[in-house]
Design a protein around this nucleic acid. Sequence first.
DNA 1: TATTGTTATACTCTATAACTATA
DNA 2: TATAGTTATAGAGTATAACAATA
Lengths: 153, 153
Amino acid sequence: MKKERYLRSIRLLAECFHAFQQISDTNVRRLGLTPPQFDIIATLGNTPGMSFKELGEKTLITKGTLTGIVDRLEEKGLVVRTSCLEDRRSMIVRLTAQGENDFQRLFAPHIQFCKQAFLSYSDNDFAALDHELAKLKQHLDEALAGITPCSNT
Amino acid sequence: MKKERYLRSIRLLAECFHAFQQISDTNVRRLGLTPPQFDIIATLGNTPGMSFKELGEKTLITKGTLTGIVDRLEEKGLVVRTSCLEDRRSMIVRLTAQGENDFQRLFAPHIQFCKQAFLSYSDNDFAALDHELAKLKQHLDEALAGITPCSNT
DNA sequence: TATTGTTATACTCTATAACTATA
DNA sequence: TATAGTTATAGAGTATAACAATA
């Protein structure tokens, strides 16, 4: 099998992401959450809340699974369900005050870690990194759109 | 809370990785494997095999969990356990012929997807992307080394 | 005594599909 | 009829800790 040029780029990308995830998961567990639970907390952070449907689309968690995860977060007092007035089939999930608090506490170690990693980055370094990542993301989204009709049923 | 410059870079990185993972997981399920199972297959691919210890370190899966995952892959006929002659506490895991075959088949859709995304990339584009990612990875690894002593107990 | 891998337990996530209530 | 979310079920991953065999 021929070595394609882009495989190296993908490996690098995966390795970078891995480093962040390692830090994240460690701190998430330390606060008594599972990674999927934190995924929900992080998605709801700094928002007024959103429906199960929207939450499922953003996190790529299917609705049946989502019910269970939100149940556990509600038991912990981190989120609340509210009925949606416009469409009474729909439920709005949002962070409680304690949920907002944990959200901030969980991000702090991340931010600390990132700060260390980026200490020597100049404005130009950031611009160069973001430029390449944004370009990659655009091409990936285009390729994805051509492949997956993407449902959440 | 002040918006730190690097948070935008991290978000971009996560979004790019997400796109790859989405494709990966879809194809992995299609072949009847779970993502952790594929993680093992991918790690063993193109190697002569390795011990549980090494496999656990590379995939970040703890040893108790690893036993179960390897059990299921062995039932499917994709990997085999072999005793290690040098250290009889140790077990070597390696892909069977069928495992190698599935490994290749699973990477094919990935490669196809990536090829689409990178169609318009020139040699210079690749060089620029790799340069930024490699630099990021180096800084991340340094930051990680200063934080986690990193055990797999 | 330390290390490698297995076993045991309890809980969470996951896919899938049937179900209720709205629209 | 379609959609939003829940419930039910069976399987898989996970952390954790105790254990056996070997070093």
